[in-house]
């Protein structure tokens, strides 16, 4: 039965052309991120922290884009660093943060949610209390305080971002999965498994969690977008990544450039981020349509 539903969802999704294109865009971004990680760009002589232009004259002046060399397509900032290369490097941070956050959030959220929903009682009370508490604090505020405190222990940078995001992003998944688990608890096949004497943890793992996977997929995608957007804001506020390039940092630098009519950096950061988030939004919609048509 599950297999059939998945097949139907797949059919529905693959007929949605926009969604397939969006998925393609996401795959390209992930590939670029992988290339950055593997040092591909360093190998071809482009690093986000070294200026491409060697001569000192170029320092202190922005260069607008030109197609003369691929590194200069989008021009350079005043340190002579290629904006295109920086925007590409930023993908790595965005995808890493999105991936880690979404994975951890979905894993933790599913496990806690399914356990709480299935067992009920004290465990349920505890889990509900935990996520209600976290959700009642405005999330940007919580993220900022968390990254401040975590920064003192892990040092500022991407690790701190992981810690802060993973600690907050799981609550949405957890709430939904718990609801679903409560519904499934009384389903026939679960009751049957219970009657057969299968131990409870196994029921949760084998029967409850797999049947909530459609929600987990949708939430994976949602958390991914949320994490990317939040990373940009935190980096913009200088609470985020430090060494790496990030769209947030680019936008922060670009604030001053606007008044001297230099739009390349903010344009690049915005466009790169826009495309990824747009693709994710379309993809999530299609996913939701295919897997969880009832939700609004």
């Amino acid at each position: 039965m599950r297999g059939l539903r998945k097949y139907r969802a797949y059919r529905k999704f693959s007929r949605d052309k926009m969604a397939v294109v969006a998925l393609g865009v996401i795959v390209v971004y992930v590939l670029v991120a992988a290339l950055v990680r593997l040092g591909f760009f360093e190998a071809v002589g482009a690093s986000h922290e070294r200026p491409i232009v060697a001569d000192k004259q170029a320092v202190a002046y922005y260069t607008p884009g030109s197609t003369q060399s691929w590194q200069h397509w989008l021009g350079t900032d005043r340190q002579g660093r290629s904006i295109l290369v920086r925007a590409l490097y930023s993908i790595n941070v965005a995808i890493s943060v999105g991936m880690v956050t979404a994975l951890v959030a979905v894993l933790v959220g599913t496990l806690l949610g399914a356990t709480a929903g299935y067992f009920g009682g004290r465990i349920d009370d505890l889990v509900v209390w935990l996520y209600s508490t976290i959700e009642s604090i405005p999330y940007l505020l919580l993220l900022m305080v968390l990254s401040y405190s975590a920064g003192l222990y892990f040092g500022k940078g991407i690790i701190t971002i992981y810690v802060a995001f993973c600690a907050t992003f799981w609550t949405g998944v957890c709430r939904v999965i718990r609801g679903e688990a409560i519904r499934l608890r009384d389903a026939e096949f679960v009751q049957a498994a219970k009657a057969l004497g299968i131990p409870a943890p196994l029921i949760v793992l084998r029967h409850i969690i797999p049947n909530t996977s459609h929600l987990a997929f949708v939430y994976f995608s949602l958390e991914f977008i949320g994490a990317i957007k939040s990373e940009v804001i935190l980096s913009f506020l200088n609470l985020g990544v430090q060494k790496e390039a990030s769209w947030g940092i680019m936008i922060e630098q670009a604030r001053a450039e606007l008044a001297v009519d230099f739009y390349w950096q903010i344009g690049a950061a915005t466009a790169f981020m826009f495309l990824l988030v747009l693709a994710f939004n379309i993809f999530t919609d299609a996913l939701q349509d295919a897997l969880d048509p009832k939700s609004v």
Binding site: K229, V232, I233, F236, W247, G248, I251, A254, R255, L258, A259, I266, T270, M273, F274, V277, L278, N281, I282, D285
Partner: peptide, 18 residues
Amino acid sequence: AVMGMSVSFLVYIVAGQY
């Protein structure tokens, strides 16, 4: 709507002011 959601809040602020 989807496009509006996809632009960073920051860009609206920075560009709007200027």
